[in-house]
Structure formats: C-alpha cells, structure tokens
Amino acid sequence: MTAREDSPARSAPDALREDKRALRRRLLDARKARSDDDRAAATAALTRHVLALAEGVDGPVCCYLPVGPEPGAAGSGTSTVADALLAAGHEVLAPVVPAEPGPLDWTRYEGADSLVTGPLGVREPGGERLGVEAITRAGLVLVPALAVDGRGRRIGRGGGYYDRTLPAVPASTPLAVLLHDDELIDHVPAGDLDVTVAQVILPTRGAVAVRNNH
C-alpha cells in the first residue's frame, strides 16, 4: 500500500476544517501582500458604496471595526468605514467579543478615541454594553469576512462569533460583507452552521447580490 492508502480517511468535519484552514491562510497572505496604496484606494471606494447603501436606512448601522489589511480599515488619507458612517450622522454600533464563545455584544461607537483594549486584547469601544439583542434593531449590518462565494457562503477568521450572531438579524435587514474585488470567489467550504449572506460590497462594483440559500 502507498502511504496515502495506509493513512486513515479524513472525516467530513476534519476535511472541512482543513479546507477552511488552507483557504484562510491563502486569503490572509494575499491581504498582507497588498500595498498601502491599494488598501487606501479600496477603503475610499468601499466607503462611498457603504454611505450610499446606508442612506435612508431606519435604525443604527452595526459595523465591525476593521484592523490591519481588512477592507474598510484606515489608510493614507482615508478614515475607516465606521468613522465615515459616524461623520455622516449615523448611529454606529460596534461588536464586543464575549469572553466565552457566544453571540457578539454591541456598544455605540463614538470614534477611535473611545476605544479601549478588551479582555481578549481586541480594541473595542469602552461604552455601555447594549446586549446581544441590539443587532435586531439595526437598519444595516456590515459583516467582516475573508471571502464570499456566489452562493453567499462566507469564510471568516475562524472564531465563529458572527455565525452565532447573524441568525438573530431580521430577514428584512440588509446584511453585507466588505471585500476586495478578488475576494468574491468561486467556492467557499462551509458547513450547516455557517451563516450565508445575500450581498457583498466590492470597490469597483459596489453592492453585488449573491445567492443566499438560507
């Protein structure tokens, strides 16, 4: 027998984890390789699209706080998408990662000066916690991801916090993922508990509908 034939077959959960891990590593490496100018241009374009999408929404905007190479992060001459929404007069709710695995808590974002280092080392607003149910009154929810495919399946960083949070979002609430143009891909490995999305926002194309089977 060959070494491949001798080795035990991968279980479906193990295979899914390995496929996600490999894709996640490739996507993270690609983001790190982007130039500062490319990131700044992407953020500027994404900000314009998000502000257009948020115009006239009823309720706050739930918006993750991008860091490093994430789409929407601050760059040379640009502010974050969250700061742009705040400057446009929107109430912005930012996620707070719980100490134990579970749905995200939320608090009002009032600018970069309001951020403190949370218990997990993540920068987060230091204001009053509004509870996990705060997302249910949002007029727009912006979700982080490394990639999304044409069926609306998204891959994040692996913590699972948004997959535990998004089922509470009313079906009528727009839910969108900010991506670089090449991060809308052909296939994202996903399991039954992975929540799909219906829309992505790309720098060159703006809001793009993707098929959502959930």
Rank of each mutant, 00 (worst) to 15 (best):
T2N: 15
S7A: 15
S7M: 13
P8G: 05
R10T: 14
D14N: 11
D14Y: 10
A15K: 14
L16Y: 12
L23E: 08
L23Y: 05
L23G: 05
R24W: 13
L28I: 14
D29F: 06
D29W: 01
A30I: 00
S35L: 04
D36V: 02
D37T: 08
A41T: 07
A44V: 05
A45N: 05
A45H: 00
A45G: 00
L46W: 06
L46V: 00
R48T: 09
R48D: 10
G56M: 11
V61Q: 11
V61P: 09
V61W: 12
V61C: 12
Y64F: 15
V67R: 14
V67D: 04
V67I: 15
P71S: 06
P71N: 05
A73R: 07
A73Y: 03
A74D: 07
S76P: 11
G77I: 10
T78Y: 08
V81C: 04
A82D: 02
D83K: 06
L85P: 03
A87V: 00
A87E: 15
A88S: 14
A88D: 14
G89C: 04
E91R: 15
E91W: 10
L93C: 03
A94T: 01
A94Q: 05
A99M: 04
E100Y: 02
P101D: 00
P103N: 03
L104K: 03
L104I: 00
L104H: 03
T107Q: 03
T107W: 10
G111N: 11
A112I: 08
L115Q: 05
L115H: 12
G118S: 09
G118C: 02
P119T: 14
G121C: 12
V122H: 08
R123L: 14
G127I: 07
G127M: 08
V132A: 14
I135E: 02
A138G: 09
L140Y: 12
L140S: 09
V141C: 05
L146A: 05
D149Y: 12
G150W: 15
R151C: 00
R151S: 10
R154L: 07
R154Q: 04
R154F: 08
R157E: 13
R157H: 15
G158F: 09
G159W: 09
G160S: 09
G160Y: 12
Y161V: 11
Y162R: 01
T165A: 03
L166S: 06
V169Y: 09
P170L: 10
L175K: 13
L175M: 15
L179E: 06
L179K: 04
L179M: 09
H180R: 10
H180K: 03
D181F: 07
D182M: 04
D182R: 10
I185F: 05
I185R: 01
I185K: 08
I185M: 08
V188W: 13
P189V: 01
A190N: 08
G191D: 12
L193Y: 10
D194G: 04
V195S: 04
V197Y: 11
A198K: 11
V200D: 08
V200E: 10
L202Q: 08
T204M: 03
R205C: 10
A207M: 01
A209S: 13
V210Q: 06
H214T: 12
H214G: 15
